[in-house]
Write a protein that binds this DNA or RNA. Sequence first.
DNA 1: CAGCATCCAACTAGATACTG
DNA 2: CAGTATCTAGTTGGATGCTG
Lengths: 140, 140
Amino acid sequence: MSDALSAIERFSRYQSDDAQSVESVHCPVRDVLDRIGDKWSILMIMTLATRPQRFSELHRAIRDISKRMLTQTLRDLERDGLITRHVFPTKPPSVEYCLSPLGQSLLDPMASLIDWADRRYSDIHAARVRFDGAPCDVPR
Amino acid sequence: MSDALSAIERFSRYQSDDAQSVESVHCPVRDVLDRIGDKWSILMIMTLATRPQRFSELHRAIRDISKRMLTQTLRDLERDGLITRHVFPTKPPSVEYCLSPLGQSLLDPMASLIDWADRRYSDIHAARVRFDGAPCDVPR
DNA sequence: CAGCATCCAACTAGATACTG
DNA sequence: CAGTATCTAGTTGGATGCTG
């Protein structure tokens, strides 16, 4: 893995040039964040990381997702090549979703983020309490 | 850094138990994603990673953010302890924003994600073209 | 079983105007 | 300079009902 600063520079490239009017020049990072930043994608990838699963298995695993969002999230992830969809021509139909190699390659970077979240959450929570408790030490 | 699978297990914990009605039990990962998944936070952190900067410097660096969102993003990041805010009592006022140690500790995990995005973007783009081009090879 | 279609409430964020 | 306030368009996602 390359270091943080060079990654920052690559990220900043897409912001520094005049990509204001040209919407076609799209920042990859923005793109990835839009995908994994939504409500269910990461949880879906994480759930599929353990093993391939069928539609209703996923629905049981992520109990508070609606069928609408389950379908849509799966479709978006499939479109981006992160998961594959295989239909078994049984009756009633059965569809299995599976993490693709591309999707698996996302597991490591995501794990490092999850790891950070887990370890630093108490710090964040403490900061919030501090901030909410003393909102006006310095005039704003 | 711990491996991906154990991170997945920790993440899944928060989903598997009956946290449906109890909204107070909050998943740290969800929390972090809500912060860095929004439109400007990562870009803000990345911009501040190079050096501390003032309000209008940030506005110039991120040219297509509105003042409203600039203020709000900075406030949210400050609340979570990721950045610090220092007011210089000059006239007119001058305010400097700076990445905190906690915020700096986020740079590495974020860099690994950015790195992934940068390297795999061509794969994702190709997958999209394939998906959009051949939407109905298999009946859906 | 594995979806799709429709409607709608809530939230996000841009535009604009004003302030100490 | 560094914000705040208000209004509004656009987006997200939940609820519900229907289908091969």
